[in-house]
């Protein structure tokens, strides 16, 4: 029947063996091998370090405590008692950009403020991420006029856009979780970035 939804439990049990099929008991050697395989992780050292670094970065994001407009109040609310962002490891709001690795652009960016935002972004140490929170910082929102930058992505690279005016705190939490997914899936840079590449990024070589 097509209209009864298929029941999908979160974890399915292993299919039971067909009746009548003969199951050989495992030998002591085979049991030993299985035990060893279960306890060990065979991988390259590099990818394991990368995995560990991604885990560390994703689960301890330090946002910059930097609010621009209305959305900043909702950003403060996620640190408050009801929404409690520390459940996702992002509660250490830093006052200085040099100690932070996530910039939540919470609010409208005016033309006068744009250079400041850019400078703050450049002061943050690598690796760094940006969340554009709200309609204004994503695309200008309701203020399509001479004074407001139409989207903060014109001055800094944005990783996650959170829509809403203002987004509910739950939406911002979802944005942070999306960012965690993105961090976990990324290829981490280990050690200092090779100088050649830095020059290339700057367009020198």
């Amino acid at each position: 029947m097509s209209d009864t939804p298929e029941f999908k439990p979160l974890r399915t049990l292993a299919p039971s063996t067909a009746p009548g099929e003969l199951v050989m008991p495992k030998t002591a050697d085979e049991l030993l091998y299985e035990e060893v395989e279960r306890g060990l992780l065979f991988t390259k050292v590099e990818s394991m370090v990368g995995w560990a670094m991604n885990q560390a970065r994703a689960n301890a994001i330090w946002p910059l405590s930097f609010g621009l407009a209305c959305c900043a109040i909702e950003m403060m609310a996620i640190a408050g008692p009801r929404f409690d962002v520390s459940r996702f490891g992002a509660e250490v709001f830093r006052g200085s950009p040099r100690q932070a690795d996530l910039m939540i652009v919470a609010g409208r960016v005016s033309i006068k403020m744009a250079p400041v935002v850019r400078q703050l972004y450049e002061q943050m140490p690598d690796p760094k991420w940006v969340i554009a929170m709200g309609a204004c910082s994503s695309c200008g929102g309701v203020f399509n006029n001479f004074a407001i930058l139409q989207g903060v992505d014109k001055i800094v690279p944005v990783d996650v856009y959170v829509p809403g005016c203002p987004p509910r705190p739950e939406a911002l939490l979802h944005g942070i979780m999306k960012l965690q997914e993105k961090i976990l899936a990324s290829k981490p840079e280990i050690g200092p970035i090779p100088r050649k590449r830095v020059l290339k990024q700057k367009g020198v070589a």
Binding site: K112, C139, G140
Partner: peptide, 22 residues
């Protein structure tokens, strides 16, 4: 309120709103 190097007087009626097409 506006940056120091701004040119023009934005609230005059002959000054445009500065609409940017979506």
């Amino acid at each position: 309120l506006l940056p120091d190097d701004w040119v023009g007087w934005p609230l005059r009626k002959d000054s445009p709103l500065g609409y940017e097409e979506v």
